[in-house]
């Protein structure tokens, strides 16, 4: 994911305070000592959109196109009520997955 807004899970219209809170929330979620790479990504995202000027700078000059993960972030993040699958769906998936392991073992 390379879009700083998606990384911090904030809207483009977020204020400095909102971005700051989102950053702190993310750092708590991914502490640097446990997830150094992810923390660095979060830190970079925060530095990129920290102030109004930073955000405008990013909007004006960023030449890196958003990646697929950034494009789909809201869809993947959407927390729909989790459901139980139907018997048919679960059994088919179960059957497909056990056959998968056989293939993997062989390879």
């Amino acid at each position: 994911m390379n879009d700083p807004y998606s990384i911090l899970e904030v809207a483009e219209s977020a204020s400095d305070e909102e971005i700051n809170s989102a950053y702190l929330r993310k750092v708590r979620e991914y502490p640097p000592e446990q997830e150094p790479e992810r923390f660095q990504m979060i830190r970079d995202a925060f530095e990129t959109i920290r102030t109004v000027k930073d955000r405008l700078h990013y909007q004006l000059f960023c030449q890196v196109p958003p990646d697929l993960e950034s494009v789909l972030a809201p869809v993947l993040r959407r927390r729909n009520a989790r459901q139980r699958p139907t018997e048919e769906v679960l059994l088919k998936a179960l059957a497909a997955s056990v056959l998968k392991v056989k293939k993997t073992q062989q390879q």
């Binding site: 697929l68 789909l72 729909n80 009520a81 459901q83 769906v89 088919k92 998936a93 998968k100």
Partner: peptide, 30 residues
């Protein structure tokens, strides 16, 4: 997290994807 989710989903068989989608509660458009 979202950025790892997509890569993980790439390895799913269609039947597994259906289960995954059902468990996540995704609708047909998603």
């Amino acid at each position: 997290p979202e950025d790892r989710l997509l890569n993980q989903m790439r390895g799913l068989k269609p039947e597994e994807f259906q289960l995954f989608a059902a468990l996540r509660g995704w609708d047909s458009t998603q």
